[in-house]
Amino acid sequence: MFEKIKLEDLSKENILAYGEFYKGELNSSSLEILSPLKEIAQTLNKKLILVSLIGSLENIKDWEEIKKSLADEVWFVINEELKDFREDLYTEVLVKIVKFSQPYGFFFPATKIGMSLAPRVAGALQVGLCAHVNNLEVKDNQIIMARPTYGENIIAKLISKSIPIMATISLGAFGIKYGEKEPSIKEIIFPEDFVWKSKLKIRRFAPSKKKPTKLSTAKVIVAGGRGLKNKETFQKLFELANLLGAEVGATRPVCYEGWVEEERMIGISGVTVRPKVYIGFGISGALQHTVGMENSEFIIAVNTDKEAPLVKIANLALIGDAGKILELLLKNLSK
């Protein structure tokens, strides 16, 4: 169907982006990372190539997205054994592609798959890998990558001295943009003697019942803790979230109380979030919670206790009853 190309004929020194397919669907995070990479590629005068490993062409559901994408080319490796993600085999395939095409850069979305795969590839190639990058720039022909690091609002800027330059890119850090020209699509043909074998056997797969919460990439979060007193009051956060285009977050005790599902837990045992605005209702701000949200751009705390740690780190603190304030806010907003 497409141009077939042998490993040894692959063009060199490009920027590669990992196109994550799962059961025929392209993860939108792979389209997100093309946005900053396109700029980098243009600045450095290189081609941007989306590389995807799939079981068969028939299942692909996202042709439109692929055709509109910013990539200059899309390279597919197609083999029945690639139907499921298995890190050892996927690593071997990608390492082969790198060895032959000697890319300048290779970038992955920081999905669970990306974060399992990229370190294996980097290890096999013995090159550096930057994690959770949320900003990329070119300075003096060098790619400089920025990433937030734990707490304290500390941002680190990194370079990688080895080629290919590799990084995983934070989810939600960049919006999806579309290109003007349809990428050319190629299928990479592997040598006859390549062994399509993995040590992993997937015995069972249970798709998540709930839609995954968009907590980690949400731009606005309204979160609640024990200070909301009961499940009914807590549930009102969903109304507020609806009005503000926000996601609902929670502390650990209220998840354990069953006020809300555990997927919404923010903190060390839950999700790390970095919204533009975070509003915490009746949350004390224990360290285990704040490490998961303190990089939020603007923090609002609603608490009866002036001395609560969250009040201390908040940009704006309202001292008062969280339930009452929530109720009144909803009343005023739906007027």
Binding site: I155, A156, S162, N295, V311, I313, L316, G320, I325, L329
Partner: peptide, 29 residues
């Protein structure tokens, strides 16, 4: 191969403003 070339603290937008008052006043703010 990876090297941290710089670390910096992200500026906090405003110095924490702590407001007390009636729920009405607080909601207005």
């Amino acid at each position: 191969p990876t090297q941290v070339i710089e670390v910096f603290e992200k500026k906090i937008e405003t110095k924490g403003l702590v407001l007390e008052g009636s729920p009405e006043e607080l909601v207005e703010k």
